[in-house]
Every structure is written in C-alpha cells, then in structure tokens.
Amino acid sequence: MTGHVLEVAGLQKAFRVGAGNVVACNNVSFVIPPGGSMGLVGESGSGKSTIARMLVGLEAPDAGSIHVRGRQLGTRERGRAARLRRAKEIQMVFQDPYGSLDRRLTVAQCLDQAMKLHGLTSGAARVAELLDQVGLLAKHGDSKPHQLSGGQRQRVAIARCLAIEPSVMVLDEAVSALDVSVQAQILALLNEIRASSGIALLFVSHDLAVVSEVTDDVLVMYRGSIMEQGPTGRVLNAPEHSYSKLLISSMPGPGWDPKDVLQRRAAFLEEVGV
C-alpha cells in the first residue's frame, strides 16, 4: 500500500448484453507510483475505457479495489462528502473536446465552479494561473467553448482537472480527436504538468505512438484482461506476448500490409482459441 499513488487490485466488471455477459475487465491489477505515468493500450472493446470509468466512479466495479494514496475508494459514492473526496483524488479528461465542456459556461466560469465546489480558493487570479499552466491566455477565460479550437478546449478540460488539484489524472483517449500537430502540443503539455505537479497519469489510448510519448509503463489489454505489462519502451520495442506483437505490428508504417495484419490476427485468434 505504500509508495503507490494508485493501486488497483483484482478489478472485475461484466456488462449484460442480451442474454450473455461481456467481461469488460477481468481481474485487472496495477500500480502507479507518485508522478508516474501508465499507458493502457488495446483495441476497441478491450475494456480500457471501462477501467477509466470505474476509476473515476462513473461505473461501479463488480469486484476488486481501488486505492488512491493508500485510501480505498468506494464502489458507488453515496452522499456529497464521499463524492467530493473521490473527485479530489481522481480527475478525468474525456475524448471528445467538443462535448466535454458545458456550452453555456465561459472557461472562467467552468474553472471557477469546479474550484468552488471543492472549497478551493477561486477567483480571477487563480483562473489566470490555471490557464497559463495549460498554455492558454487570460483572455480565453471569457470565451465560450464554441469559440475555441479542439486543442484549446482540451487544454481547458485539462485545466478543469488541475483546478481540483487531484493526485491522479485519467486521460481517456484525450488526444484521439485532435490532429497530429495539436496532439504533440497536448502531449508536451501533459509531460510538463507531470514534471511540475507530480500528478500521476493514466493514459488510455489505442494509439501506441502517443502512449510511447507520455508513459513510463504500459499495460496491454485484450478482451478485458491484461496481456502484457512493463516499461513502455521495452513492451513496444520487444513485445513478449503474442497479442502485443500483433497490436504493434498492426500499426500503420513503412512496409505495412493490411492483409498481413489480418492474417496475423486470424493466427492469434486461433492461438488463444476463440
């Protein structure tokens, strides 16, 4: 329990789909050290977003525990105090920068209300400080979301997390909706925030190149289970598990052949016996 900012043990979640169950998360355990950065990769439907949503309390796990800074988070918060305590520990940046901000509020109002909710010092000075921290100008505080670009909105979403001063920030495909050059800026910003604030990151993505930019360690998931786990550089360069190999070889690049990928995939599915 000591030394880790986030500790997830035996996390389990199944969704009822029609008559059967789909296991979105099967006995998932991992830890993130303070200021650490963990990548969670896998194809669509591998359960990575479900883990992210369970961490922030949007889904309740069927079993397992989540500890932040040694304190266990409930599976379903009842009451205002418990809700706020959880929120104070873990914040999340969503995939869709166009929908994740309330279109009625200005940026400053959005940040202000988050801070007031948690009884933190708010006000224009703090808002300007937060905007500066995410690379926005003070004048952006008066903007409504629709006046900002996708990258700017995602910066606001990050500022909104920082406003609450959490110990862990979950980024669920946070740069997937942005174009490549903006992606690079946001990734650089995240590295900077991690270095300066010590907030641990859990970076959920299907994009291996993005994950290699911002994470120390990586978890490779397939159908709700962890296939491989290790330092990002090692896993991406020398994958051991056959699914990791498949995932990495599926990445488009020079000499990449979709037909070859499909063949490898078929071979893998045969191997795991599905």
Partner: peptide
Amino acid sequence: ARPYVDAYRVQGVG
C-alpha cells in the same frame, strides 16, 4: 448523453 455531464459527475457534482 453528452460527456460534459459525465465531467460534472467526475467533479463530484450530485
């Protein structure tokens, strides 16, 4: 269904 509602819930809004 808009993600901003989830964002408010993550903030701890009841």
